[in-house]
Nucleic acid binder design. Sequence first.
DNA 1: CAGTATCCAGCTGGATACTG
DNA 2: CAGTATCCAGCTGGATACTG
Lengths: 138, 138
Amino acid sequence: MSVVISAFDEAASREAKERRAEDVELEVLVREIIGRVADKWTMLTLEALEEHGRMRFTRLGEIIGDISQKMLTKTLRQMEADGLVSRTVFPVVPPRVEYELTPLGRSLGAAFCGVWIWAEQHRETIRQARADFSARAD
Amino acid sequence: MSVVISAFDEAASREAKERRAEDVELEVLVREIIGRVADKWTMLTLEALEEHGRMRFTRLGEIIGDISQKMLTKTLRQMEADGLVSRTVFPVVPPRVEYELTPLGRSLGAAFCGVWIWAEQHRETIRQARADFSARAD
DNA sequence: CAGTATCCAGCTGGATACTG
DNA sequence: CAGTATCCAGCTGGATACTG
């Protein structure tokens, strides 16, 4: 019996892997992108740069709010690596570094509009669903 | 000097908070929703239920692949709480529990299409950006 | 100014054992 | 079958100190 089950499990798992094998790469990419924008700081950084345009490191931190230096640096590096943000270093003392959304970064913001609209439209439905769920839990 | 700076910081921080105060709720919701779908397991669960329709707990686990029971339960509860998934318990022994996307769940999948399309379209640009960034790091 | 380096508390999620 | 309970290793991110 356990042999049968494990053979079944294995087949199902293999099937799952093969089904996804074709577009695994895209799926990984989409998950990464979504995961990145889902990240609190990335989202706030994207927003700040969308609204205020090109900005210095410290100013960006101020606008975002209570982000730590570590996370601001990490977030910006990540976004830069993905081509969402450009980083310009001015060879002056004290250093001046400016960040700006790339066209790619701006287009990502636009692509997420659909999700924003969805959330806005279904806001009340979700609130209700959560209330119902909590009520049922009692 | 430090007084001036901290006064400035405080003002900037307050400005940031006030600016967002109006739509804070929507922003939190959007971030939660995005964060949830960005979650590996939620995304895979949404996909599995989209493709295969109504399904039992164990079968769902098999299709998703190597998810642990704990995470499958947690993911499904979360999705249920948000109204994305419906849970039907059949009063039989052994227990039979079926999960299915709600209309809300299906519409969320649709809302994310824009991001998928964006990722598909800009896949090569992102790959190139990452390659360039890695190269620059050396 | 725009970071880097280090330490560490707290959350996340897998593994394992158990159950109505 | 569809979970729950417990333990714990590893990652995440804040706080703090330091620097070209």
